Amino acid sequence: MSTVSGGVAASREVLVLLRPSGVAGLVPELADPSAPHLTVKDQGVSRGDGLFETALAVPGDHGALTVRKLGAHLGRLGGSAEILDLPVPSPAQWRQAIDMGLAEFARSCPGTAATVKLTVTRGPETAAGLAPQPTAWVLLTATALPDPSVRPAGLRVLLLNRGLDSRVADKAPWLLAGAKTLSYAVNMAALRHAKANGADDVLFVSSDGQLLEGPTSTALLVRRNAEGRRELVTPLRQQGILAGTSQAVVFAAAEREGWPLGYGPLTPADLEGIEGLWLASSVRGVAPVLSVDGEPLPVDDELTDRLNAWLREDRDPGAHAVTVD
């Protein structure tokens, strides 16, 4: 097996650890992705106490990889860290680690796109009163880019009650609504439930009847407003849902083309009479929804193509997302 600098085995994965290094702070270091790096006492493992972001890196004309929506991802990570009261690497430290990983990945897997996952945990358990020592890393994994000439497969979606009302973020901030934490067991259970019941994905609904988000995606819908114009709408963020980076980029592009935009609130009744519903995520792109709870929805291929084209443009989301320098 060939090797790369530092003796790390060449593969379709690249791992960069952010190591504490005295006055230098956190320093990125290439590591073997197949070797163990966490202790059994790491609270990310024992308690799901941590957060993550997943982005997509695409190769350019000269082979260099670029992470789409990186500012939005880092901004959302910072927001999640604030909710968790978790010290995390600075944006500059993340970027340094990401750049190291991108360079190594482009060398070992030329011309290949990569899923870029940033993860940080509260680190090993410490004695009472001592500051946490977070564990942080960047993992790049080879992935296939969606083919722009092939429309994404349509999704059959179930509405599932999340068991929390739409005001949970204000009433119970300790439930961490709106943070992208490592505690994804409920989300994965929801997807398994969908598969077991003949569906592909899920759209969560609050206990007081508000449409929220998918387990790994943001909802977008197109409808006609009172003036008869098409408008692009997503559920209200203040309901404790995760701000979508893909949704932000799509909204920014739609706004530049003069589309009216809306941020809910939405209920299942608002799905009646729409021109289409989509679930958007960084790696999968914007996928049309064929049906909700078995009831068919209209599917507009032209709109699906337009939404994905807007996402691929990867322009500055501006006011539609939290960004960092």
Rank of each mutant, 00 (worst) to 15 (best):
D300Y: 13
A194P: 00
N308G: 11
R315K: 06
L303C: 10
L232K: 02
L140E: 04
E53L: 13
V67A: 03
N225T: 06
A81E: 03
D49M: 09
T112P: 03
E275Q: 13
P36R: 08
E295P: 00
G264C: 05
E257I: 00
N308Q: 03
A142K: 05
Q43F: 09
D85V: 07
A248E: 04
R312W: 12
A254H: 02
N187A: 11
D300Q: 14
L158M: 12
S149K: 15
A106H: 06
A287P: 12
Q210M: 15
A142I: 10
S281N: 14
A179G: 01
A321V: 13
A97D: 04
A219Y: 04
K69D: 09
L232E: 02
N197V: 07
L277S: 01
E295I: 15
S11F: 15
D314R: 13
F251D: 01
M100P: 10
P134H: 05
L140F: 14
A106L: 02
S207D: 08
S11R: 10
A114P: 04
P110N: 14
P235I: 00
P298A: 15
Q247T: 15
A269S: 12
L271P: 00
G48D: 05
H320Y: 12
H62A: 08
L182P: 09
A169P: 12
I98E: 08
A113V: 05
I98D: 11
Q43C: 10
R223D: 10
L303V: 07
H73C: 04
V16I: 09
T119D: 11
A136P: 01
G209N: 11
K117A: 10
A185G: 07
A113P: 09
A64R: 10
R156W: 06
S206I: 09
L290T: 15
A114N: 03
A287Y: 07
K41L: 12
V16Q: 06
E82L: 06
